[in-house]
Design a protein around this nucleic acid. Structure first.
Length: 296
DNA sequence: CTAGGGGTAAAT
DNA sequence: ATTTACCCCTAG
């Protein structure tokens, strides 16, 4: 019929994730009605959200609710040794189901948002140091380009280690380089359409990204965060940023105490980072293409 | 309305 | 052939 297939955009995916974070997985109708996301998800139905969440979970986790024989991995073109020590230690449930009522416990283990990853890759990319860049250089770059939370060093170390382990980075000597097989195949989503929340009477704003930035699929996520802060005063945004950092620290501390792989903490830390970073950017007014400070 | 299970057809 | 958006159905 009319729409043969409508691929979910990164914006929609981000909005969905954010919605799940905010309202919990399963509150599809609530998420849909939230003006924060309805601007992005107004085309989708609650069932769509459910199904999409299912699909995403299946992919991310490997075993969501609809996995079955999902054990068919791609035929790796590993030139050397492969040895994927697949330890299915995954305990991060797809359905975090935050125990909302009662005492607010910070325990949401939502995994998504690969922000710092991109930051690191961008740093390495930009630095273009032959043989790779070391931790300090990368850290300095990020600190200069963005900002550094108090626990940034730890975050970075953890992230670097993790990226190396997962093969996204290659560590030679003390230098890190981007793995050769690093598929930088992001979507061709160069132009993004944003809608003004509330009213569609205004024509969509077309925003062209990739000004001087690396081609890293990170814009959508930032967009989302910024949208969420669109109505915040600078003070509120700063407070949110501070809180985000605090939460990240708490997550790190917990993870270290538990001596775990810190997977869950990573997600939290990254989410917090993204939020904080977006806040800082907003405060600095270095938003490139758009003014998001509008108030209807 | 939601959780799931099942399925289909369209993109890749 | 796989992935993925959507659909249908049933039980809570």
């Amino acid at each position: 019929m009319g729409a043969p297939k409508q691929k979910w955009t990164s914006e929609e995916e981000s909005a969905l994730k954010a919605g799940v974070v905010k309202h919990g997985a399963g509150k599809w109708r609530t998420i849909l009605k939230d003006p924060e996301f309805s601007s992005v998800l107004y085309l989708r139905s609650n069932v769509d959200l459910k199904d999409k969440w299912r699909n995403m979970s299946v992919m991310a986790n490997g075993y969501g609710s609809r996995e079955k024989a999902r054990l068919a991995l791609k035929r790796v073109q590993h030139s050397s040794k492969d040895e994927n020590t697949d330890s299915d230690e995954d305990e991060s449930g797809d359905r975090p189901l935050p125990s909302s009522s009662g005492s607010p416990q910070i325990a949401a283990s939502k995994r998504s948002m690969i922000r710092l990853d991109n930051l690191i890759l961008e740093a390495i990319n930009k630095l273009k140091e032959p043989g790779g860049s070391n931790k300090t250089t990368i850290g300095t770059y990020i600190e200069e380009q963005y900002w550094a939370p108090p626990n940034f060093k730890r975050l970075l170390s953890m992230k670097l280690k993790y990226l190396t382990q997962t093969g996204k980075l290659v560590k030679t000597k003390r230098k890190y380089r981007i793995a050769s097989s690093n598929a930088t195949s992001e979507k061709k989503k160069v132009p993004t359409v944003l809608r003004i929340e509330g009213r569609q009477t205004s024509p969509p704003i077309r925003v062209d990204y990739n000004k001087d930035e690396v081609i890293v699929p990170t814009k959508a996520q930032i967009d989302l965060e910024i949208q969420k802060m669109r109505n915040m005063t600078p003070q509120e945004a700063a407070a949110a940023a501070a809180q985000a950092v605090a939460e990240a620290e708490a997550a790190i501390a917990e993870a270290e105490e538990a001596a775990k792989e810190a997977e869950a903490a990573e997600a939290d830390a990254e989410a917090a980072q993204a939020f904080a970073e977006a806040a800082m950017k907003t405060l600095k007014g270095r938003n490139s293409t758009q003014r998001l400070t509008l108030r209807t």
